[in-house]
Design a protein around this nucleic acid. Structure first.
Lengths: 189, 189, 189, 189
DNA sequence: GATTAATCGAGACGGTACGTCCAGTCTTGGA
DNA sequence: TCCAAGACTGGACGTACCGTCTCGATTAATC
């Protein structure tokens, strides 16, 4: 497609190993202790190979994010008829997740990356499976009349996601009943 | 009070200059380019003076935050009778603020600090004047019966704050009508 | 001639371009800033083409030396009858040469190459036209009885060459009368 | 003496360890494989400490040279009455030294350093004990009338040193009788 | 008022990681 | 089979900061 002339092609295995290592190191050590040298070593790759294809740590993380390397293993909401019940169950799981050190670390380091880097920020929710699934569930509910027509699904997803993020940043563990109460506050009636 | 014995006392001017420089550098360069060396130079202070009193970058930022050095000049909601109208006006201002580079930088760098550091995270909203004012306004509305008794004010504040944060991270400029629509989605009816 | 099987033959133009570029880069930048990559670029040749035929920088330089690419444009001694007069004239030219930046650079970089690499060292004077000419002139003088029979021509050539080299290394410019005095010290009477 | 203002003083132990390591590494690996990183490691010193005080590899070597860290353990000429005899004995030892791998390596790497770097070149013979001792011996001989008044001692020292250097570069082992023949060629009668 | 100790600014220290250059090898496609 | 181009792993470069330690000067409680 693009005429590159002769010369060896970019190594796909190196590309994947680098993104894999980036995601691993991010989750393990956080944005600030994430070193290019560490990634290069973990991926068995020379530093120049990283710098040849990515311009910065942020760029790397944004790419790893988009390749799904940083996917959180987050629960997805059921679509079992009753919206409030489905959401309550899901929220409970999500808030419980907020007690899991690995999951919260992932979220926090992603937040840090998003805060520091525009590219990560823009792609932040594109790559978030839970947000997408939640949007789908709410859209379904809305077309089924379970949700007020006035409600903007994207806004509601942001509100719910935002609460979860704030709790993660605050390092606040979930108490029993939190999910129910939260839902009652955001989705009244 | 405590018997310190002889010797010079801690220099208050140095303390303030360091916190001031920390806040300035954070807003100007972000968490990652914030260097102790830079702070020391800007505050005309030796590095050991910083390390004598603070253990880390995070510690410094958390302190600067608590001293109000990083206070956002955020608008406060009116308390003029109609909740929805007051909130709509305030939200509009807040979302407009999300278009201001300095304000968004401050928020983003605070997020980064909170994400990386537990101390900052825990104090994140203690130091946020807008959140406190919003909580007060909502509490007032709740006791005036303008808000469903089921609603937890703290949760609602989190939801609204969370949406704003997500928009800042996403670098999404506010469009006209966003505030109204958003309010309609989170505070339906 | 020799049956090499199928495939393209070694490119003579590439070979020459590489040696030419090696000599140019050596004189221009010195042994230490001489890069294979630079030579490859200057010779419009791929790096592997260089490594295919030469094992090291030293090997390249030794080869360039033997191909006469690094020949100094040094004056040759006259053979006009009087040995002392001929040598004085020649030495004066040589010492003047030692004031020429290009010539001294060439000599110094050759010295560096000889010091670092055995192959260059062994071929050092084989490729030096001035030393050979001087030897011839002295041999002639010796057979004409102008030089003591005791004198070993090769040793005398070394002594004179050595003095010139030391002056080049010392970056000592020649003063008037140096050639005469030098000759008086090494070839007394 | 010099007002440096406040702050810690330069560490003498670090300075010496660095020069020591430089000399050791130079003799062991040669100019080209001499790495600042290697020196830092061997001297148990951070790289910036080296760069703080020396601008380049050459600078380091020139300094090590002047501190006598690279002193060759070269024999010194006797002053026993007969010049030719003393010189013959000394030259024999020197040429034998030219067969010693460590001594020749030292000389060759010093040559390389002198060739590449002006500072090393200028100080080349200041730091050479053998050259100084030879000059003293010859000066003595000259004032005793054993040496022609026409002879310039410095030139003669250069000639003898130059021959030795050329032999070292040429990797030519000394044959029996070389010293005698050489002396007969340079110091005839 | 002298002593004493903790402070201060400055800055050198041993280190880690940066982002770059180049080494030497391997791969690709064309001649 | 060789060539040019160029990507690869890897090592060293010279720089920026880290967090610690050491200096000489200053300052204030204790003697």
């Amino acid at each position: 497609m693009t005429d590159r002339g002769p010369g060896a092609l970019r190594s796909e295995s190196a590309r994947v190993a680098i993104l894999r290592a980036t995601a691993d190191q991010l989750v393990a050590h956080g944005w600030n202790r994430l070193t290019i040298e560490g990634i290069a070593a973990a991926a068995h790759v020379g530093k120049p190979t990283i710098y040849r294809w990515w311009s910065s740590k942020s760029d790397l993380i944004a790419d790893a994010l988009m390749e799904g390397m940083l996917q959180l293993e987050s629960p997805l909401p059921d679509d079992g008829g009753d919206l409030r019940e489905d959401l309550a169950t899901w929220l409970e799981q999500m808030l419980a997740l907020a007690g899991d050190p690995v999951a919260t670390a992932t979220i926090r380091y992603l937040m840090a990356a998003a805060a520091e880097d525009e590219a990560v920020g823009r792609r932040f929710d594109e790559a978030n499976g839970a947000m997408a699934a939640l949007a789908t569930r709410l859209e379904h509910a809305k077309s089924a009349g379970q949700l007020d027509a006035e409600v903007d699904v994207a806004d509601l997803v942001d509100a719910i996601t935002g609460v979860i993020i704030l709790r993660v940043l605050r390092r606040a563990p979930a108490a029993p009943g939190d999910a129910q109460r939260l839902l009652g506050s955001i989705l009244p009636r």
